[in-house]
Amino acid sequence: MNIFRFAGDMTHLISILVLLLKVYATKSCSGISLKTQELYGIVFLARYLDLFTDFISVYNTVMKLVFIGSSLAIVWCMRFHRVVKRSYDRDVDTFRHYFLVGGCFLLALFVHEKFSFREVFWAFSIYLEAVAILPQLILLQRSGNVDNLTGQYVLFLGAYRGFYILNWIYRYFTEDQFSRWISCVSGLVQTALYADFFYYYFISWKNNAKLKLPA
């Protein structure tokens, strides 16, 4: 564990707490893409298949349970919670995310560290996480103004993988046999997808204006 990875995990945890706060405090999921939440649920379920077989540390296991639990809880809320589901606007959340699932799985079948059930699903989860934010970013562009909590949720979610890139650089230089090129390349793509969001978020913060993404 190094400070970059810990900062990344904490930033990721904060993004989840901000999202839970928004949904439970406002009893509304307006501006949140159900499809992105479903993709993240698939990402965590596919990535943490080793949850009960490989014990790394208490921290590792607890965080995996938090990530799986929170993503499934949000999906459940947006689909079935009496009040919350009313604020979900499926007419705006129209990204065909099943193509992302199919494409990433196909890619994982060809590009992986080792051709085994666990490794293919792990690579699939890494590729899928890189593009999972697309439905959410498209929805924000469509819905124009972005409420503060949703903006902060996306900001922290984008920043966490940026910290992971610093972690991979650090580990590359401090550990001899470290090679996570699948995670690194995907992490770079993932963080790059947030670039324009970061830019507009910074502009809105500088001008102390409401965050607006150009359509």
Partner: peptide, 10 residues
């Protein structure tokens, strides 16, 4: 072929 290192990252 040595097994890839355990996935210690989240």
């Amino acid at each position: 072929h040595q097994a890839p290192p355990a996935k210690d990252e989240l």
